[in-house]
Amino acid sequence: MPWLQLLIEVSKPHADAVVTTLEQHGALSVTLADAADEPQLEPGPGETPLWSRVKLTALFETGEETEQRVGELARALAAQALAEPRIERLADQVWERVWLETFKPTRFGRRLWVCPHGQRPDDSSADEADVILALDPGLAFGTGHHPTTALCLEWLDGQDLTGQTLLDFGCGSGILAIAALRLGATRAIAIDHDPQALEATIENARANGVADRLDIQAADTQLISQVDVVVANILAGPLIALAPRLTAALRPGGALALSGVLAEQVESVSAAYAGRIALAPVRLREDWALISGTRR
């Protein structure tokens, strides 16, 4: 069935009240997004972070009565809006597969490809030596198209991972741990606080034939043994807080790669690791950075 979508931009102080109004008038769902390209990182405990300018998207069922009600609602909310509210009609879709429209086979580095399940690179782009990772992110973060994930994948492709063990902290879809296993690592540990991320990681590992070499752990698990490689694509604040734990998990001479870091955050994150990690030159892509090095 088709749907009606009401889009409205409001300032942060009005967001909660407008969400409540939309839900009281029959919105099936309301999503909040940044309307002004404003980073929102590391909220404090118990905080619900919002941008200063918030874009609300409310979804309604169609029908003559509903369309009239949504039109009246848009006019009533116009006084609180930063721009004229818009009503759009959406054709029905298989929503959980919409991501496939922009997720295509992509090369990272020299030989690593990330492809949606059921797709492969065309014959003119790949050769027999290339490594193919089939991926369905599910509800978790990570297809390789965000600059931070791309930086990590390219870094992994440049490492000699044969016979290595790896820790992927904040695994999301499992893309980094599974890529490492496909590139020759013997074992990987994937850690995340989100059960949906761990579920996506397990399913993707099975689809790539590496589930028997992958250990899934919750974020509060005590790390006992040291590994050869640590990757963590999360955010600057958690990376700083986790510095003692992540460096302790890495054997002397082991390799570390950190991302999810904005360019202006490189100095503070690097400082948290510099005492125990010999840092390499920072790699940048768009506004994001990858910090890497080896354990002293």
Results as ranks from 00 to 15, higher is better:
1 M>N: 04
10 V>G: 09
14 H>F: 10
14 H>Y: 12
18 V>C: 09
21 T>G: 08
22 L>F: 05
24 Q>W: 08
26 G>Q: 05
26 G>K: 04
26 G>A: 09
28 L>D: 10
33 A>P: 06
39 P>F: 10
40 Q>F: 00
41 L>P: 02
43 P>R: 00
45 P>T: 06
46 G>F: 00
46 G>H: 06
48 T>P: 00
56 L>M: 14
57 T>Y: 09
59 L>D: 05
60 F>N: 07
60 F>T: 03
61 E>P: 00
64 E>H: 06
66 T>R: 14
67 E>W: 04
67 E>K: 12
69 R>G: 12
71 G>A: 02
73 L>R: 05
76 A>L: 12
78 A>L: 01
80 Q>I: 00
84 E>T: 08
90 L>V: 02
92 D>T: 01
101 E>T: 14
101 E>L: 15
101 E>P: 10
102 T>D: 15
104 K>H: 12
105 P>Y: 02
112 L>D: 02
114 V>A: 03
115 C>P: 04
121 P>L: 07
121 P>N: 07
126 A>E: 01
126 A>M: 00
133 L>G: 01
134 A>P: 01
140 A>S: 14
144 G>K: 04
145 H>S: 07
148 T>R: 03
151 L>W: 05
156 L>M: 06
160 D>F: 01
169 F>R: 09
170 G>Q: 08
176 L>K: 01
179 A>I: 04
180 A>C: 11
183 L>P: 02
186 T>F: 10
189 I>S: 11
190 A>Q: 07
191 I>W: 10
193 H>A: 15
201 T>G: 04
201 T>E: 09
204 N>E: 09
205 A>H: 12
210 V>I: 14
214 L>N: 10
215 D>E: 15
219 A>L: 08
220 D>G: 13
222 Q>W: 12
224 I>D: 15
225 S>Y: 09
234 I>P: 08
235 L>I: 08
238 P>T: 08
240 I>H: 08
242 L>E: 13
242 L>C: 12
246 L>D: 07
249 A>F: 13
252 P>F: 15
252 P>N: 13
253 G>L: 12
254 G>M: 07
257 A>Q: 04
270 S>F: 01
273 Y>R: 02
273 Y>A: 01
275 G>Y: 02
280 A>S: 13
281 P>L: 08
284 L>M: 15
285 R>G: 03
288 W>K: 10
292 S>N: 09
296 R>C: 14
